[in-house]
Amino acid sequence: MPIISLAVAREHLRVGAEVSDARMTELVNGAEGIVSGFMQRPITGEGGWQADAIPAVVIEAIKVAIVELYDNPGAPLVDEDVLRVLVGYYSRPSFA
């Protein structure tokens, strides 16, 4: 089950039925993957948060990523500085 509902994603993008549910699902799933990958941890499930305890800044980071995926479908450029500000506190350190 997606962290952000299709209705919330549509409202955030200010789109309606002209964007299919399938496309909205792709955007939401992709955005959640971007944020999870940036944090190097799952958002929900083992190692993540309970669905009702996800920090608001994580939700906002997902919304930022949804906008970027929608606006630039061929080459999304989610600003890592923005993600760092929003969810850097929750990220696992990288030693690579």
Rank of each mutant, 00 (worst) to 15 (best):
S36V: 08
E11T: 14
L6M: 08
R41W: 04
L83M: 05
D79R: 05
F95W: 15
S91D: 05
G88E: 01
Y70E: 03
E26R: 14
V35H: 00
A31M: 12
I62Y: 01
Y90T: 05
M1A: 11
A61N: 06
M39G: 00
P76L: 07
A51E: 12
L27N: 01
V87P: 00
F95M: 14
P73D: 07
M1E: 10
V8K: 10
Y90H: 15
V28D: 03
G30T: 10
V19T: 10
A56Y: 13
E18M: 12
D21G: 15
V15R: 04
P93Q: 09
E68G: 06
D21H: 15
S91V: 05
V87T: 00
V78Q: 00
V58P: 00
A7M: 10
A65R: 00
I4T: 13
D52E: 14
D71C: 09
G47E: 10
Q40F: 09
I34Y: 00
P93M: 09
A9T: 09
R14W: 02
I43P: 01
G47R: 09
D52W: 10
A65P: 00
P42K: 12
R10Q: 08
G33V: 02
S36I: 04
E26M: 15
A75T: 06
T44C: 13
I66R: 02
G74L: 09
G16C: 05
L6C: 07
I34L: 04
P73G: 04
R10L: 09
D52T: 12
L69Y: 01
V64G: 01
K63P: 02
I59H: 13
S91L: 03
